[in-house]
Each structure stands twice: as structure tokens, then as C-alpha cells.
């Protein structure tokens, strides 16, 4: 009862041992993307925890945080741009025209 009933639930996609190189790359990219917040948390929280009682320079800290911040943003931008389109993503039925257009640069 607690398991979803239906053929879809039984044949879960993505349970193959050996993947095509492209799919494998995509999965590893996603792994990297998933690890970004962990890296971010380390970079943002650890200095405050470790150097909490010191008398560090505020200007230096300011430079540190903004530098790490921009590094994380750049890393994220590079990773998501390298990610090929998800073949499983639901097609947006409301706007078929948009799908054919190249992704617009933003920011």
C-alpha cells in the first residue's frame, strides 16, 4: 500500500550500472552542483567559527567574504552552464515557442 502502484514505479530509470559517457558526465556535474552549498557553508561559516574570538581586521574579512562569494557564484555559473538539458524535465506546455530559443544570458 505504501509503495506507489504501477509499472512506472517498478521500472525506475537510471538504475543501469554502465552509462553512456555523456550521461555519466552529466551525473558527475550534478554531483558537483549538489556539493556547492556544502563548499559555500564551509567558506562562509567556518571563518566566523574559528576566528570568532580574534581581533581580525574587518576590512580583510570584507575582502575575504566578497572574494569567496564571487568565486562560488562563478563556479555555480560554470557548472550549470556546462550541464546539458535534462531529458526528463517536463516540457512547458504553456509556451512551446520558448523551448526552441537559446537560453538568454542573465545577470
Amino acid at each position: 500500500m505504501s509503495q506507489p502502484v504501477g509499472p512506472k514505479a517498478e521500472h525506475k530509470p537510471g538504475r543501469t550500472t554502465f552509462l553512456e559517457r555523456r550521461v555519466y558526465r552529466r551525473r558527475r556535474l550534478i554531483d558537483a552542483i549538489k556539493l556547492l552549498p556544502v563548499l559555500g557553508a564551509c567558506l562562509f561559516l567556518l571563518p566566523a567559527l574559528i576566528l570568532g574570538d580574534g581581533s581580525g581586521s574587518t576590512a580583510l574579512r570584507l575582502v575575504y567574504f566578497f572574494f569567496m562569494w564571487i568565486v562560488l557564484i562563478a563556479l555555480c555559473a560554470v557548472l550549470v552552464r556546462a550541464l546539458p538539458d535534462d531529458p526528463d524535465a517536463p516540457a512547458d506546455a504553456s509556451d512551446p515557442a520558448e523551448r526552441n530559443e537559446p537560453r538568454e544570458p542573465a545577470g
Binding site: W69, L72, C76, A77, V80, D95, A106, G107
Partner: peptide, 13 residues
């Protein structure tokens, strides 16, 4: 569109 999130993921920060 869900894909907008991938841009927002770095553009919003």
C-alpha cells in the same frame, strides 16, 4: 519554467 532556476542559482546570489 523550471530551467529558470538554473540561471537564478548563480544570478540571484
Amino acid at each position: 519554467d523550471e530551467r529558470h532556476l538554473t540561471v537564478a542559482s548563480w544570478a540571484f546570489p
